[in-house]
């Protein structure tokens, strides 16, 4: 490890929160946050896929750099992530059908969840990161994603009870709420 564990975790979860500071993974953030149970499920799925993806892409990236094939980075990363998601989907379908049915359309959409791809690209971009740094960074990002999503879902569950002006309903008020949550995370800027 080249950087202290705590610093890496804190930076990944709060300072560089993947959803609220780096704008990655917005689709599942807005799409699966209407109910707490879906939000928790989605967070779990992302933690699982993100860490697996970080492991695989680390090896692949090293291989690509070694053979001067950097230009295949995007193609190979997305293929690895897509296959992983397929695997997780089959696993959930067999083992945890209720979770599978509640995540519905959003499980295949982890493929197009830029949080996963983005975290892998960030890891690949930091060339001095060793294997453990990448894994911890991925874990921190995944926890950060889960934290943001669950906080957001908690607020959104209450918004349903409030009387919101018609044009602001749904996604619109959701985004404004997300902005206010992002504001609280913004105070972490510059701490690490």
């Amino acid at each position: 490890m080249t950087e202290p564990f705590f610093e890496l975790m804190f930076a990944g979860i709060f300072v560089n929160n993947i959803v609220l500071a780096q704008f990655l993974g917005q689709c599942p953030f807005l799409g699966t946050s209407k109910k707490m149970s879906t939000a928790t499920g989605m967070s779990m799925a992302v933690v699982f896929v993100l860490i697996l993806a970080a492991v695989f892409t680390w090896f692949i990236n090293n291989l690509l750099v070694k053979h001067d094939l950097d230009y295949l980075q995007i193609v190979s990363f997305i293929l690895v992530i897509a296959s992983l998601v397929q695997f997780v989907e089959m696993f959930l379908k067999k083992m945890v059908p209720p979770l599978y049915s509640s995540l519905g359309i959003f499980l295949p959409l982890i493929t197009t969840n830029c949080a996963v791809m983005g975290a892998c690209l960030i890891n690949a971009g930091k060339e001095e990161y060793l294997f453990m740094d990448c894994i911890i960074n991925a874990l921190a990002y995944a926890i950060g994603f889960g934290l943001a999503l669950i906080l957001f879902a908690g607020v959104r569950e209450r918004i349903i009870l409030a009387r919101v002006p018609k044009p602001l309903e749904d996604a619109s008020i959701g985004l404004v709420t997300a902005g206010i949550i992002a504001l609280t995370f913004y105070t972490f800027q510059g701490m690490v």
């Binding site: 560089n16 971009g125 930091k126 060339e127 001095e128 990161y129 510059g190 690490v192």
Partner: peptide, 9 residues
């Protein structure tokens, strides 16, 4: 040469 800074390299 490069090193990671606060947000990027």
């Amino acid at each position: 040469t490069y090193k990671s800074g606060y947000a990027d390299k």
